[in-house]
């Protein structure tokens, strides 16, 4: 539901970058999204097709690179892949873990023509 807000914030950032780089148009936007960011890539894509109209990214494609969820155990130190609703250590089962990847919501790169 909030993907349109996120998309508008992204397009603001992209416009600033395009202006700074003196770009004529933006051709591709690459973002990195983790499942724990709370943003659904498919909904962001839908929002993008509406929100890009009239911006410098009107012709751009949006590429989403989904990130894996990984945690590190604070007890035994193991590092393992995890699921969104199961972030416990895969080795010792302890729930004292630290998320090392999976909540990203990053603008990775912008491609453009001058």
């Amino acid at each position: 539901m909030h993907e349109l807000s996120v998309c508008l914030a992204m397009l603001n950032q992209v416009s600033d970058i395009a202006e700074r780089e003196r770009a004529a148009n933006v051709t591709r936007i690459v973002i990195r999204v983790g499942p724990l960011s709370g943003v659904v890539p498919e909904l962001l894509q839908q929002a993008f097709t509406i929100a890009r109209a009239g911006t410098i990214a009107e012709q751009a494609e949006l590429l989403t690179e989904e990130q894996p969820i990984r945690v590190q155990c604070l007890r035994c130190g193991s590092e393992c892949e995890a699921r969104a609703n199961h972030l416990v250590c895969c080795e010792c089962g302890d729930f004292h873990t630290r998320l090392i990847s999976g909540d990203e919501l990053l603008l990775a790169s912008v491609e453009f023509n001058r």
Binding site: V6, A9, M10, N12, Q13, I17, E21, A23, T27, R28, I31, V39, L105, L106, L107, A108, S109, V110, E111, F112, N113, R114
Partner: peptide
């Protein structure tokens, strides 16, 4: 074309 790497939070303004 050209590409610039950004690595900025999408909600950095917020």
């Amino acid at each position: 074309g050209e590409a610039v790497e950004v690595l900025q939070n999408l909600l950095s303004e917020n």
